[in-house]
């Protein structure tokens, strides 16, 4: 059985113009250790797919299993626990809490766990070191560059070792050099066995993925496997 299974997953929204189907009866399996790129034009359903994968919105119909757990059969609070334990989010605009330092932002997913303050600090420092930002742990987000904020966001997604990382346009607001660094970081994480699903417009980073799903009008248009093994980091 695949690590992630989407079974006829649909999502519709009610608008003034009527019902809009953002994702239509999607069927998808993702194996553990994949680095999946989700691509497609604006309005194709990429963000809706990522939102559903993250357990953040109820589908209109269908079922989603992650690690054999029927995510949307869980209650709201149990789904919050599921997100904390299974999913690391890397948001498009980093979404760091502005009044918390880098290490405090990374510790956020641990704030509602039973980890002691010392253990939280150890885990957060480890995650920041892993993304190469161990020297800036006490800086506030506004004291960090875009690339550094992205690294903090990745460290926050990694800190509690979730099986799945969902990333939304992580290179969208970065220059090409920093984008390469960030994609290399994701590649390294994938080589370490991390399952990653990344939504992006950026066709220049296609070669980092081992599989690409292209959405069009709320449905999967193409599903291409590029590499069977996790890719090597590109220098």
């Amino acid at each position: 059985m695949a690590f992630i299974e989407l079974d006829q997953l649909s999502k519709s929204y009610a608008t003034d113009a009527g019902q809009v189907t953002a994702l239509s009866e999607t069927v998808l399996q993702v194996e553990e250790g994949s680095f999946l790129g989700v691509m497609g034009p604006s309005g194709s359903g990429k963000s809706t797919l990522l939102t559903l994968l993250g357990g953040l919105a109820e589908p209109t119909s269908g079922r989603m299993l992650i690690d054999d757990i029927d995510v949307y059969a869980l209650g709201d609070e149990k789904r919050a626990d599921f997100r904390r334990e299974y999913i690391g989010f890397v948001f498009q605009a980093y979404n760091l809490i502005p009044y918390l330092t880098a290490i405090e932002n990374v510790m956020l997913p641990l704030a509602v766990t039973r980890f002691s303050a010392v253990r939280q600090a150890e885990l957060a420092t480890g995650a920041l070191n892993r993304v190469g930002l161990g020297h800036r742990i006490d800086h506030l987000p506004n004291q960090l560059s875009g690339g550094e904020q992205e690294r903090v966001a990745i460290a926050r997604a990694l800190v509690n070792h979730p099986p799945l990382i969902l990333a939304d346009e992580p290179t969208g607001s970065l220059d090409s050099v920093t984008s390469t660094e960030i994609m290399n970081l994701f590649t390294q994480l994938n080589r370490d066995g991390q399952t990653i699903i990344m939504v992006t417009h950026n066709t220049g980073i296609e070669h980092y993925f081992n599989r690409i799903v292209e959405l069009k009008d709320g449905a999967i248009a193409t599903d291409t496997t590029l590499k069977s093994e996790p890719v090597a980091a590109v220098g």
Binding site: L56, E77, A80, R83, R84, I97, L108, A111
Partner: peptide, 16 residues
């Protein structure tokens, strides 16, 4: 709102 959304996405329960 946005900040609370981040907390919820990161696994904070409603009672948190």
């Amino acid at each position: 709102c946005h900040e609370i959304g981040i907390f919820r996405a990161l696994g904070f329960r409603k009672h948190h």
